[in-house]
Amino acid sequence: MLSRRIIPCLDVREGRVVKGVRFRDHVDMGDIVDLALRYRDEGADELVFYDISASPQGRSVDRGWVERVSRLIDIPFCVAGGIRDVDTARAVLHAGADKISINTPALERPALISELAEAFGVQCVVVGIDSIREVDGEWRVRSYTGDPDHTRELPIRTLDWIAEAVRLGAGEIVLNCMDNDGVRTGYDIAQLQAARAVCPVPLIASGGAGASVHFAAAFIEADVDGALAASVFHSGRIAIPALKRELADQAIDIRRQ
């Protein structure tokens, strides 16, 4: 049986883990390896590192910290941010990342998804999608969401983009529901259910986790393969061992250590 995955997401800037409103008021959370090991010990099934300094500055991920993490971490991890071409992806994968995640660059040039899938196999290629419900009730995608001043509204329907990304070679979709992001009122179950219906590859819920019940709802009601969260784990509001016990009590298949 395949377990449902619990995935902490860490924002990385200059090789340190930071938190705060993206691009503003960053608080240093500590060394990337220390935090990665802490989450590994607590039972995280996978980690996502989002290099927030790379993408907006138009430079690629610093492979130094990717190597440091890979050396010490014995669970899978994905690197996001600043990956715009096959060469950069190769450098990140060869530094030890298991997967790479692309978002805005895939929207700007969808062929990038196919190029990465051909070069490394679909299992390495994650497409991250930032989605928002617009006034007409449709979910549509946003690009450049890392920087609120530069976020762009695109006319692409989220569900269409999921299908297209999978067709082009995405091996996994991370759907970040922006309406729920940071509010801790739960994942956007309706949107995740709609996404699930059009997504034959693994689907990861993102945005809105505030309590254990939110994870359970995403797994049970939206049948997602994994659930990603950041602040609730960093703040200690949700402890992964307790979360996993609660999920297991509800007969959700969770990895035991």
Partner: peptide, 30 residues
């Protein structure tokens, strides 16, 4: 879903040194 991605249960089909101590555990597949 395909790819089969994530932690999945291992079931021993016979005894072997290679798999000592891992029957019933979960490992990472992609």
């Amino acid at each position: 879903r395909v790819p089969h991605m994530g932690w999945s249960t291992l079931r021993a089909t016979r005894a072997d040194t290679l798999i000592d101590g891992v029957d019933g555990a979960q490992a990472y597949f992609v």
